[in-house]
Design a protein around this nucleic acid. Structure first.
Length: 451
RNA sequence: UCCUGAGUAGCUCAAUGGCAGAGCAUUCGGCUGUUAACCGAAGGGUUGUAGGUUCGAGUCCUACCUCAGGAGCCA
């Protein structure tokens, strides 16, 4: 069977590149995606990971064994097919393959047909068969876009003077002291926890390198069961010295604009497969700034919306925004909206108070459009030793565990800011998905750790 | 943790307390332009589990299990 080289006279290519070979004979290596037959004419659809293409097999035009082999071939059997590329207006991709020869790599037996049909299926069944579900065009498109988003996100920082510094995944204590963490035994007496954020550590690397970011998996053991939550997800976090909240918001804006721009450049076909309206993404990168709302302004917007009967819940001033609140706020804009200066009481201990109003924190949540909610959370950090120490005390956090973190304020403290973006929520928003479980190859959720 | 909903063929779903059904998938047959192709036929069931009510339970009751998505919490 052909692996890297082939004895076949036709060059090996991919379906994505098939247009470059119009009129030529090529060899494709992949799987049988679907098969339609009309008497002495077969329409096999081939898939190779880069796309799909329909083959044409007239009984009179091919050797007997080629016709008979394909006629009874089971879906998702693997194969190597040779044929001539022909432009055809009837084909969705514009090209069809006049099949000359086929070699079966592995034929799926009739008794054990491929479990996933082309027709609709339920969530439970699909997730139970996630290792196979990812073969479908829609899931493949999502994973390709995910890869672009991750690459574009990292590249944005790489090309803007940031150094990637990876924080530990095993940590001795909670970062923010709030979230539920996955706990594990660490050589007997000690406990270790899976990280919920690398932020505290990259504050340290920022003091060493100036502009840094981290990019890796993050874990939350909270029993959240919604379309926005995973127990294991990927987060990219920049941290910058001598940057204030306004600078951080500008950074987040430029960062998101770059990511959306790259997706639009590279994935019009994938976005079409998924069914995403690209005009929604084009609106995001239109040349105007992202709206910025203070907490107070957002609160007023919610009160007004409730008065007009647009939302059911009544937002209490001083409370954090609930999911329905965020959904409403973001639905009022076509671009991501940045809500800043929340009450310090509902935010993390490490956030710098606003000098104009110390009851507010210099923090920002970026809410994605179309009701997708929070995709970025960030803040300017407390840079004063005594204030940070008193915050750790008032939040009942173990002082000993934070000695190294306090050292950052003891030895050459500087103003600094950073944010974290959840990759899966970003992918869900850009792709227009109902649930984050489709944005990662193998989602880990409250009730599922298989496959 | 709380609230709500759902479990029937491999998959998606029907079935007023009264014979367990359909489409797709699989197998067999037909069709030379099909687009989740279509047409004909066949095989395929411990109705999530355990009890209970009833002449009779997929259907009603109780408990449990599994899953879903909403709250809280968060990215």
């Amino acid at each position: 069977m052909p692996i890297e080289t082939s004895s076949a006279p036709s060059p090996i290519t991919t379906i994505a590149d098939i247009g470059k070979h119009e009129g030529q004979s090529v060899t494709l290596r992949g799987w049988l995606y679907n098969l339609r037959a009309s008497g002495k004419l077969l329409f096999p659809i081939f898939r190779d990971g880069t796309g799909t293409i329909q083959g044409i097999v007239p009984k009179a035009a091919v050797p007997e064994h080629v016709f008979e082999t394909l006629k009874s071939l089971t879906l998702e059997s693997s194969l190597v097919v040779t044929g001539r590329v022909r432009a055809d207006a009837r084909a969705p991709s514009g090209f069809e393959l006049d099949v000359d020869d086929v070699t079966i790599t592995q034929r799926i037996p009739d008794e054990t047909p491929y479990p996933i049909q082309l027709k609709e299926a339920g969530v439970d069944f699909l997730m139970e068969n996630r290792h196979l579900w990812i073969r479908t065009p829609r899931q493949s498109s999502i994973l390709r876009i995910r890869a672009t988003i991750m690459r574009a996100a990292a590249k944005y920082f790489d090309t803007n003077g940031f150094i990637r510094t990876d924080p530990p995944i095993l940590t001795p204590n909670a970062c923010e002291g709030t979230s539920e963490l996955f706990e594990m035994d660490y050589f007997g007496d000690d406990k270790a926890y899976l990280t919920q954020s690398g932020q505290l550590y990259i504050e340290a690397t920022a003091m060493a390198l100036g502009r840094v970011y981290s990019f890796g998996p993050t874990f939350r053991a909270e029993k959240s069961k919604t379309r926005r939550h995973l127990t294991e997800f990927w987060m990219i976090e920049p941290e910058v010295t001598y940057m204030d909240l306004d600078g951080l918001m500008s950074l987040a804006e430029a960062f998101l604009t770059h990511i959306v721009t790259r997706v639009l450049e590279l994935h019009t076909a994938d976005l079409k497969t998924i069914g995403k309206d690209v005009t929604k993404l084009e609106a995001v990168i239109a040349p105007s700034p992202f709206p910025r709302l203070t907490y107070d302004e957002a609160h007023a917007m919610l009160v007004d919306a409730h008065d007009k009967g647009l939302i059911e819940t009544v937002h209490q001033y001083g409370d954090d925004f609930g999911s329905p609140d965020e959904t409403f706020i973001s639905s009022q804009f076509t671009k991501p909206v940045m809500v800043h200066r929340y009450p310090a009481a509902v935010k993390a201990f490490y956030m710098q108070p606003d000098p104009q109003d110390p009851t507010k924190a210099l923090c920002v949540d970026v809410l994605a459009p179309e009701g997708y909610g929070e995709i970025i959370g960030g803040s300017q950090r407390v840079d004063d030793y005594d204030l940070l120490k008193s915050r750790i005390e008032s939040h009942n956090l173990p002082m000993a565990a934070f000695q190294w973190y306090l050292d950052l304020r003891k030895y050459g403290s500087v103003p600094h800011s950073g944010f974290g973006m959840g990759i899966e929520r970003c992918v869900a928003w850009i792709c227009g998905l109902e649930h984050v479980r489709e944005t990662i190859p193998f989602a880990r959720t409250l009730n599922r750790i298989y496959p």
